[in-house]
């Protein structure tokens, strides 16, 4: 049984479903459930250099957020005077199926890469972003959890309008 469930948990389709479910929670605006998918030491990272960036410290990022800052973002969105959310923004992640880069059965970890299109609409406006999401996942008693979600945009360095939601 153990070996069977282990094969299941590392199954590529299981990992791809997990990544797709994470994006679906964002698209549905279910942020508390979304944040519950992240480990306590997790980071959400949108490097300014996109895929070319080595680390979040020597170069700038559009976002580099630990759990506290992710919570801050979510708390703010619940606030009745989050002015920029009137009208409320909506988003749609259009994902290619996640490809599994690395599996470490012993450590219980996996890494995936997921090319995406991201659409964010607000009133009459629409913003389109594209790139590759890279998830570093760790398996816990509660199932797969995200240790890092890295969003490598194609054009993070271009002059951008406000991005209201999570890519």
């Amino acid at each position: 049984m153990t070996s069977m469930s282990e094969r299941d948990r590392f199954d590529h389709a299981v990992l791809a479903d997990f990544v797709a479910d994470e994006a679906a929670l964002l698209d549905a605006g279910r942020y508390d459930e979304w944040l519950a998918l992240y480990t306590d030491d997790a980071h959400y990272w949108v490097p300014l250099m996109g895929a070319a960036q080595a680390d979040p410290h020597t170069h700038q990022s559009l976002a580099y957020e630990d759990r506290l800052l992710l919570q801050l973002r979510i708390e703010r969105m619940k606030h009745p005077r989050a002015h920029s959310l009137r009208p409320r923004s909506r988003c749609q992640h259009v994902l290619q199926p996640a490809r599994v880069d690395v599996i470490d059965r012993e450590a219980g970890t996996a890494s995936t890469r997921t090319p995406f299109l991201y659409l964010e609409t607000r009133g009459e406006l629409q913003l389109t972003l594209s790139g590759v999401c890279r998830h570093r996942l760790v398996h816990t008693d509660a199932g797969w959890r995200i240790r890092e979600k890295r969003v490598d945009l194609l054009d993070a360095e271009r002059a951008l309008p406000a991005i209201q939601l999570f890519i």
Binding site: V46, H57, Q60, S61, L62, A63, Y64, L72, R73, R76, A82, H83, S84, R86, L160, P161, A162, I163, Q164
Partner: peptide, 21 residues
């Protein structure tokens, strides 16, 4: 870098309300 990111990034939750207004 932290200040610029928190307050002047296109993803900044502080700037969002400025820009909207």
């Amino acid at each position: 870098q932290s200040y610029n990111r928190l307050v002047f990034s296109p993803m900044s939750v502080v700037a969002h309300d400025d820009v909207h207004l």
